[in-house]
Nucleic acid binder design. Sequence first.
DNA 1: CTAGGAACTAGAGCGCGCTCTAGATCAAGC
DNA 2: GCTTGATCTAGAGCGCGCTCTAGTTCCTAG
Lengths: 142, 142
Amino acid sequence: MPDHRSPAAPLTIGETARRTGLSVHALRFYEREGLLVGPVERTAGGRRRYAEADVEWLRICVRLRESGMPLADLKRFTGLVRRGPGNEAERLELLNAHQRRVEAQIRALEECRSVIAWKVGVYADHVARGEAEGLWDPAGPR
Amino acid sequence: MPDHRSPAAPLTIGETARRTGLSVHALRFYEREGLLVGPVERTAGGRRRYAEADVEWLRICVRLRESGMPLADLKRFTGLVRRGPGNEAERLELLNAHQRRVEAQIRALEECRSVIAWKVGVYADHVARGEAEGLWDPAGPR
DNA sequence: CTAGGAACTAGAGCGCGCTCTAGATCAAGC
DNA sequence: GCTTGATCTAGAGCGCGCTCTAGTTCCTAG
């Protein structure tokens, strides 16, 4: 079965920035830091040309970063991937650990949310009462 | 046996740190930054004595911080509270805005979680297959 | 009285993750 | 050729939120 998709024209750094949500600066920074699996291609004039695979990898990086993975861990993970097949178990372990952290984060945020919601309730009540009665409790809620 | 509850014996900075989860350093820092509603009491010798109300306020601060509120916003909120009754609507607005951000954060994290879960699935599959067959796809998943 | 730990102040320092600068080069359109 | 804007490199700088230092003072126990 033939592949209908075009051979994915390489992207400039600007286009890659737009597609990943990273800044151009950040893209160069990530590269310097070794957060890309393979070396990025260059034009004769020295400009970077990103392949689709690079963009996909970067999108995963963005997710990992968004969810709080430190650059150091991301670097470790990238290193494993760069070293090629054979260490999938290790990669899995790393991702699993991160996943657990993400879940903990979500739980923590949900708790915060409920505390804030309670506080919002207190104020909403207070405001409603105030508007109704034009009277504030001098020792009201903080 | 001393009563840790009622007339709420004032707490040392160390005890307050333990109860709020903030460091002693952070407590002093917060005070300098004007993140406390009222001035903290002092002993004759100049040591801080925190009241229960301070601890409660700090616990809210911790939740707000944990959920990503910048110190600057926290400071604004504290300012409103310090100015006393009359600006509850403004406080409510601030908290509501933050609540929306928290919800957005949770949604974002949940999306990350699902991306990561997918990736974990890919690897888990890979590892299982590899253990079963002792064979790795040279162009396997990143 | 003495020792040891907790707390005090003012201010410097730090870790993270970019972000920005400077000065040069490249590439596309007129 | 010239202009304009994107990109290049190496490295400095920054914003945030604490954290740590130095040198001193307080307080409690023995």
